[in-house]
Design a protein around this nucleic acid. Structure first.
Lengths: 102, 102
DNA sequence: CAGTATCCGAGTAGATACTG
DNA sequence: CAGTATCTACTCGGATACTG
């Protein structure tokens, strides 16, 4: 099922939060992303960023600063995913009202 | 994040497949769902159906047959989720073409 | 700052056997 | 047929310490 290809990308405790953190401002350092997401470990952030890059949702740029800075930003493909995330967010809100009760 | 409320429902190896199996025909027995999904164990199917019911996405009806038959069908709320799944499926197809290459 | 390696606990899911 | 119980294996994610 094709839907599983999408779920592979979306799934994970941090994936969507990271995409949102990058997407809102565009061009973020690992440090900034880490702060925005909050509570994520170095290992997880690093791992997820790598996967997102492989999936062509974000690009990675190394800057010649000292110490090194690495910038991430959404690709065009990554931006198309944001629409989906928005839809999911809307549905999630409705669902929460219905099930959890506000 | 509200999107996580949606992901809680969508996540899992079988969740979406089960919803699709029920949704296409509406009113399915456990036996039918199991056949449609394919490869799912009794334990998993049972567990997922229970969760979906708690989340008010499906309803459970016990029929007075012998042996017992149980019918599941999507609720209205469950149907709103199908739109999301369709979107995810479309995105998944694009993604597959882009990344995996058809 | 960015990234990697290791160790460990908790949760997820499979196989199998069983009840009504 | 529908559902439960048990036992086991594997993956996920957190904590920590380390390199350039």
């Amino acid at each position: 099922m094709a839907v599983q290809d999408a779920m592979d990308v979306l799934y994970g405790k941090w994936n969507i939060a990271i995409l949102s953190a990058i997407g809102f401002y565009n061009k973020r350092s690992v440090y900034d992303i880490s702060n925005d997401v909050g509570g994520i470990s170095n290992k997880m952030l690093s791992k997820e960023l790598k996967e997102l890059e492989i999936n062509m949702l974000i690009t990675r740029t190394v800057l010649n600063t000292k110490p090194v800075t690495v910038q991430y930003q959404l690709t065009e493909h990554g931006n198309t995913l944001r629409t989906i995330i928005d839809n999911l967010t809307d549905w999630g809100k409705e669902h929460r009202v219905k099930i959890i009760g506000k």
